[in-house]
Nucleic acid binder design. Structure first.
Lengths: 227, 227
DNA sequence: AGATGTGAATGAGTTCACAGCT
DNA sequence: AGCTGTGAACTCATTCACATCT
């Protein structure tokens, strides 16, 4: 059905954004929405929206627009967000704990099933009802829980070894917050979120003539206030 | 000299990465480096590296390579990293505090000069030697400190209003961690870091045939272990 | 009419390939 | 010989413009 293969990362990012917006509209009782309306919300072109949505299967009705709930459902399915993704967090410093609570309070599509560190002072403490374990238990937990995603929030100096541990433990994707570019394992999907680079980018552009653009992470520049 | 105008965000991100690597090489006493060597470190093409570096002014020596310290210096200058950028953090929840300590421990080119919240329980506490203030003092602090960058780490529901407060206070750039796409003010540079979208992207791609690629935030896909 | 879907045109970014320096 | 700098080719993404459906 969904010939859903091969969406580009940028497209996926936008789709995930649309989806959140649709949930919101749906809650408000909005029934249908046009590409033009969505475009305004996100500061994107209507053509862009249509291209994106066409890629996951045409559910627009010409002359009318898109059905909000249908579209939301389809998006959810196409993005694999109809099911829960289990993840483990490695590194229980400030950032790791912050991410943990952030995700715990999230909409629940990403469930934290493990929290790890090596610091004896941290092990045994709890993060959102979860006991912090020693990293040596990582493989066991990943295996028994079926966790697919690892979140890396350790200091730069030990990022690579912990990354390797995640790979060895069997996760299929890693989101890395350590300010290092990891040497990625080709068998899994790896994504770096480098806060320092983000700041440096801002620093650069405000040094400059200050072009007015807004940039977003996944490398597209739209914006919306959907609340 | 530097006709440094108009580098694209992706290029800036790569340059900032190169710079960090060069610092490291420099510490190790490495004197010169070739585009090929850099390419290997970051899993990029040598041509890419040369194009990037050519844009900030040709300091390569044909047949030889680049002088590490010269290049580092030039990069630092071109990226505006020769000076300290002052920033304020709005939102002292888990994420805000985590970012605060993360940046405080950073190399010091970004200095936190203000930490804000609205929660009476948090106000008066300290974050890395800095007293947490009420958001109403934001404008005053930004003015007196000359802060240019605002970091937003508040809940989604109040992100827009706090963003507006930052703009009104006079910062020139905002890095937003709230999981909302802000309605950006054209006068300032705004950048969203959406952790949820990052996770959803990973979720999607591991649902798929699992193409092997690694992606990085600023939308380029290189990687390096430079430690 | 009004909005979608989509080929064609444009634009941005990356890689190729080679001329030009040391 | 070796490596940089750079125009040309190419790939990927976005925008245009319009045919198509309700």
């Amino acid at each position: 059905m969904t010939l859903s293969n091969s969406l580009s990362p940028v497209t996926v990012n936008r789709l995930s954004l649309y989806l959140r917006c649709l949930h919101c509209l749906s809650e408000k009782g909005v029934v249908k929405v046009s590409s033009k309306q969505l475009a305004e919300m996100f500061h994107l072109s209507a053509a862009q929206i249509r291209k994106d949505l066409a890629q996951i299967g045409g559910l627009g009705i010409r002359g009318v627009g898109y059905d909000v709930t249908d579209l939301a459902q389809r998006l959810q399915l196409s993005l694999g967000l109809d099911r829960v993704h289990r993840l483990v967090i490695v590194g229980m410093g400030n950032l790791g704990r912050a991410l943990g609570t952030f995700l715990a309070f999230d909409d629940g599509r990403f469930k934290i099933v493990g929290a790890f560190d090596t610091d004896p002072d941290k092990i045994g403490n709890s993060l959102e009802n979860l006991e912090i374990l020693h990293i040596r238990d990582l493989a066991e937990v990943v295996r028994s829980s079926g966790a697919e995603i690892g979140v890396l929030a350790v200091p730069a100096a030990v990022a690579q070894e912990n990354y390797d541990a995640l790979v060895a433990a069997g996760v299929k994707a890693v989101l890395n917050f350590a300010p290092v570019r990891l040497d990625p394992d080709p068998r899994i999907r790896t994504k770096d979120v480098d806060i320092r680079t983000h700041l440096e980018e801002l620093g650069f552009f405000l040094l400059q003539g200050m072009s007015t653009a807004a940039t977003a992470d996944g490398a597209f520049e739209p914006c919306a206030r959907y609340r």
